[in-house]
Design a protein around this nucleic acid. Structure first.
Length: 684
RNA sequence: GCUGCUGUAGCUCAGUCGGUAGAGUGCGUCCUUGGUAAGGACGAGGUCAUGGGUUCGAAUCCCAUCAGCAGCUCCA
């Protein structure tokens, strides 16, 4: 006897064996026809899945209206794409074909090199398959029989996967549709016809099982929806996202550029971009001062020996610019020529600020009364990122961290850590960046790559978790094994306009650098004994480059007044009023506002349009009326014409908005973050 | 770094079969003097990414390099 409980609370009893489909059919033939999958006790299954003979289950039937059904359908669409590709090209080896946040992909090994020119052909073949509306048939086989099946169809990746990845599965499942059979956990939709609209998106390389040492495969990306309207809406959203891309806006709004002659991944901040950065830096500096940080400055290079002690060199040698060798300097060459010893010193472009700050800590003996010491610097560092990684401002080779290093006692760690998190939160929220998640990275207890005693780690991880939980951080997750080798950390992660996630702020504990093997940091305790301080690395913004890149997309280029490079633009109705316009401009500039004047011989409509496109927050229209009354007509970028104010009144209005860092407009929420776990969801 | 794609005016892009280069926009000058998202005319602006090769002839075909884009891998 089986009891099936439905979402409306009703219960159906069965004494004979039933499948999900049978229950749907009992409820009604229309539902049976519309049902694409079911959720049995929280697990998504196909409609042909038999329910247990005994006990009680909860069942929800999924139709086109349910979000979970979309994933099932997309997975089926991935199969159909693979089937089409196999029909069109010889020697296709299938790897994995899971769903993603917005669609699906399938990895292939094949001799033909796929390109976008192949897409129409593949899409046409897929459309043909979908039109035939064939069923997906689930077949379960014992392992040895399954190996025969994949051997027979000469699918080597599948053979390997059954042997290694599925080593502990006594049986494995296949799905057959017509001539196409694929090793697959499922579930699938009943028949192909439910796929309303699909589109192939791109082709790219990917490694077998995600390991760069393995064979490289061709990955074909696609998206699928239940209706053409949904697909069109999605494609339109993607187009809008592209327009918000910080690389596009950076060029349009003249914020920054990258010049090959200067070097890839090296940002040139144009005047307008530099204003945004300068305002942000000032904001952070004010917060640092309030929170007891002390600003310092350190050089952009340091001797290699410094980084040998810190451990950054040669451990990260491949991610650093090569060293500067002084023996190549003319003076040294001359010395060597004269028979002297060449200069053997080597310098490194600084990859991290911490060693320099440590040398400031070490510049004199420290007492427990001095702690915590908080040294802050907007420090520029250089790292040689792989060429394929460079990406606008979000992944660069030279960047400035809003860095600080805290040296404290073990008893102070929790409070200091909390303080760092609070400052980060405060900064993000002031900027309206509320759509972030926090990832707490702990060690992998099975690995031995970590420095420091396990007891110390345990205590630190416990304390950090406690601190974070007490703060109610949004979307907090714990990532075991993601900690740095020197300590656990908390990262603030924000998604860009196309859903790619970027780590911005970070707070990290460090047991390594203060240790005897590294810099041997000390302070004198109340007991007059030497003690070892604990270090915290923290950067609320992360780097100015990446942060502003994400911020450009967050605001879609329409910055709040306090950050806007050009805050106010004066525009005259005709050249007759240019003198008055210049007078207004001068007054606003003297009041500290960033103002420009548009005194061209253009019509007011054209001037307004140009300022709107430039995303200038306020336009001041001046003509005969304003000149007579000593006023300005304010046009708000968002609201349009909002009437006239005396000049002093307008200035006060703008200054107040700047002082409160008011945010009046934020671009629509970013695309949902690409769930990194998506690929594993449908492992085979 | 790997796979694929792309590189033409400041910007966005067109350029057919291999026959010495085009639009829109922006920029400059002039006309126009106007009231909240595009007034008009004229003009300047190109080593077709770079270097080789094939060819009577290359923006176009081939090779290499550089840069960008998408994805993968990496990220102290």
């Amino acid at each position: 006897m089986l009891q099936v409980q439905l979402p409306d609370g009703s219960v159906k009893d069965y004494s004979k064996p039933v499948r999900v489909f049978d229950v749907a059919n009992d409820i009604g033939p229309r539902l049976a026809k519309a049902a694409l999958a079911g959720v049995v006790d929280g697990k998504v299954v196909g409609v042909d899945t038999p329910l247990p003979a005994e006990g009680k289950v909860e069942l929800k039937l999924l139709t086109k209206k349910d979000a979970e059904a979309l994933g099932v359908m997309r997975h089926s669409c991935a199969h159909i794409m693979a089937r089409a590709v196999m029909r069109l090209f010889p020697d296709v080896q299938l790897a994995f074909g899971p769903t993603t946040v917005d669609g699906f992909y399938y990895d292939f090994a094949m001799s033909h090199k796929l390109s976008e020119e192949d897409f129409p052909k593949i899409e046409a073949e897929m459309a043909k398959i979908i039109k035939q509306d064939e069923a997906f048939e689930r077949i379960v086989e014992p392992r040895d029989r399954a190996l025969e099946v994949v051997g027979d169809i000469k699918q080597q990746f599948k053979v390997e996967h059954i042997q290694t990845g599925l080593g502990d599965h006594p049986t494995v499942s296949f799905y057959r549709q017509g001539e196409f059979i694929d090793l697959c956990r499922g579930p699938h939709i009943p028949t192909a016809g439910a796929i309303g609209a699909f589109k192939l998106m791109s082709v790219a390389g990917a490694y077998w099982k995600g390991d760069a040492a393995n064979q490289q495969l061709q990955r074909l990306y696609g998206t699928a929806w239940f209706s053409k309207e949904d697909l069109d809406a999605y494609l339109q959203k993607m187009e809008e996202s592209k327009r918000r891309d910080h690389r596009v806006l950076g060029k349009q709004l003249d914020l920054f550029s990258i010049n090959p002659l200067v070097g890839g991944g090296l940002i040139l901040w144009h005047p307008r971009g530099a204003i945004i950065r300068g305002e942000l830096e000032q904001f952070v500096k004010t917060e640092l001062q309030k929170r007891g940080y002390e600003p310092v400055y350190t050089p952009n290079i340091g001797k290699v020996d410094l980084y040998k002690i810190s451990g950054h060199y040669p451990y990260y040698a491949d991610a650093q610019f090569p060293t500067i060798k002084m023996k190549d300097h003319p003076e040294s060459l001359a010395k060597a020529k004269a028979g002297g010893q060449p200069d053997e010193e080597e310098y490194l472009l600084k990859p991290m600020n911490c060693p320099h700050h440590i040398m400031i800590y070490k510049s004199r003996p420290r007492s427990y009364r001095d702690l915590p010491v908080r040294l802050a610097e907007f420090g520029t560092v250089y790292r040689f990122e792989q060429s394929g990684e460079l990406n606008g401002m979000t992944r660069v080779r030279g960047f400035t961290q809003d860095d600080a290093h805290l040296f404290c006692t073990e008893d102070q760690v929790a409070d200091e850590f909390r303080g760092c998190l609070e400052m980060t939160q405060f900064i993000l929220e002031t900027l309206g960046l509320t759509d972030y998640r926090v990832r707490l990275s702990f060690r992998d207890p099975k690995s031995d790559k970590y420095v420091g005693k396990p007891e110390v780690w345990d205590r630190a991880e416990r304390e950090l978790e406690q601190v974070c939980r007490s703060m109610n951080l949004p979307h907090m997750s714990i990532a075991p094994g993601e900690a740095a080798f020197y300590g656990p950390k908390a990262d603030f992660i924000v998604a860009d306009c196309i859903g790619r996630e970027w780590q911005l702020g970070t707070v990290q504990l460090d047991y390594n650098l203060p240790s005897e093997q590294r810099f041997g940091l000390e302070y004198t305790g109340a007991d007059n004994q030497a003690h070892r301080p604990i270090m915290i690395h923290r950067a609320p913004l992360g780097s100015m480059e990446r942060f502003i890149g994400v911020l450009i997309e967050h605001f879609a280029g329409a910055f709040p007044l306090w950050l806007a490079p050009e805050q106010v633009r004066i525009m005259t109705v005709s050249e007759k009023f240019n003198d008055y316009g210049r007078q207004v401009e001068r007054q606003l500039r003297e009041a500290g506002l960033r103002v420009t004047g548009d005194f061209r011989a253009e019509k007011i409509g054209a001037k307004v349009r140009d300022a709107q496109i430039r995303l200038v927050p306020y336009m001041l229209v001046v003509g005969g009326r304003e000149m007579e009354e000593g006023t300005v007509s304010i046009r708000d970028r968002i609201e349009g014409d909002v009437g006239a104010l005396p000049i002093a009144g307008a200035i006060a209005k703008f200054q107040e908005e700047i002082r409160t860092k008011r945010i009046r407009q934020v671009a629509k929420p970013m695309a949902p973050a690409a769930a990194s776990g998506a690929a594993e969801a449908n492992e085979y």
